[in-house]
């Protein structure tokens, strides 16, 4: 069963087209990543799903209904730009959001979440006394406290330190295991790669990639070689079959030309100098994102020469 279906959805603000003929399907019980650069139309799409905005054209179907109300209690929402009442106490502010959603078992849930996020001893502190990370935890709890069926998270990991990032990741995976459908937007491709069952990439209002993560990666094939070698980037670029280099520091990713022979590249690398590491694999989501965003950029703005160095 699909929780969300968008068909041919358009939305503009004045002369600016924010979302352009977008089709999207999100199945129940899965984690769906919504990826795209700033200003690509992610938040507008999320607001249409929340019924805050109506589309200019197309259908937005949520829980099987095309015309629902704003603030459906079955949806939990954590916006990218988020704040809390500074003067309220942590427990009270979570209870306030639970009550707004009509949650019946909020007290036990509040205690559980506060314990899980190590905030139990802060329950009676005012929000203004919390650190940024703690406030983000409270915001997350406020979004999930009413046990929604669909959880929409807009950039949930932005500004989090690695420890809290893991905490949020585990919490989201647990919620999914409990049957919740999760849609989250992110710039962080590595997180999306680790967590998402499927992804949708949107760029300048248009969908450029959509589907289960494995399928998306398969679609781009095994065209990426990760190497650790003493050769310079220019020397690597001169190798036959290498189209582009992504310099990651200790490791470099070589993107092969279509139809290039891996064995030939390996032979050339060994002959050219000492080779410490050689690995053939799928492109990462980050790489795919850069290719699409870069291709679009190249088409529209900056006609680049074929071949080059990233990173």
């Amino acid at each position: 069963m699909n929780v969300i279906e968008l068909h041919d959805v358009c939305r503009s603000f004045g002369a600016r087209l924010a979302v352009d003929r977008l089709d999207l399907t999100i199945a129940a019980g899965r984690i769906h990543g919504f990826i795209g650069p700033n200003g690509s139309g992610k938040t507008t799409t999320i607001r249409m799903i929340l019924r805050v905005f109506a589309p200019d054209r197309g259908q937005v179907i949520v829980f099987g209904k095309e015309h629902g109300e704003v603030a459906d209690d079955r949806i939990g929402y954590l916006p990218e730009e988020r704040g809390l009442y500074k003067k309220m106490r942590v427990h009270d502010v979570i209870k306030f959001f639970a009550d707004l959603k009509g949650s019946r078992h909020s007290q036990a849930d509040i205690d559980d979440w506060l314990r899980r996020f190590s905030l139990a001893d802060r329950a009676n502190h005012r929000v203004e006394s919390l650190s940024k990370g703690m406030a983000q935890k409270v915001q997350f709890i406020a979004a999930v406290i009413a046990r929604p069926e669909l959880l929409i998270l807009d950039e949930p990991f932005s500004g989090l330190d690695p420890v809290n990032r893991e905490l949020f990741k585990d919490a989201i995976l647990d919620l999914k295991r409990g049957g919740m459908t999760v849609l989250f937007s992110t710039h962080d491709m590595s997180v999306a790669e680790q967590m998402c069952d499927s992804i949708c990439m949107i760029h300048r209002g248009r969908k450029v990639l959509d589907g289960p993560l494995d399928e998306v990666r398969r679609q781009y094939g095994e065209d990426t070689i990760r190497v650790r070698t003493g050769l310079t980037n220019s020397e690597l670029l001169r190798l036959d079959g290498v189209m582009r280099i992504n310099d990651l520091g200790r490791m470099r990713e070589l993107r092969m030309r279509q139809g290039a022979d891996v064995q030939s590249i390996l032979r050339n690398l060994v002959q050219a100098g000492p080779l410490e590491h050689f690995e053939l694999g799928h492109p990462t989501l980050h790489d795919i994102f850069l290719r699409i965003a870069g291709d679009t950029c190249a088409q529209n703005e900056c006609a680049q020469n074929e071949g080059g160095v990233d990173g």
Partner: peptide, 18 residues
């Protein structure tokens, strides 16, 4: 104004109609 400046309004939008 506080709700708008602190972006509490964004959080509330998911929970309540204007």
């Amino acid at each position: 104004l506080e709700e708008k400046q602190l972006r509490i309004s964004e959080v509330l939008l998911g929970s309540i109609q204007p």
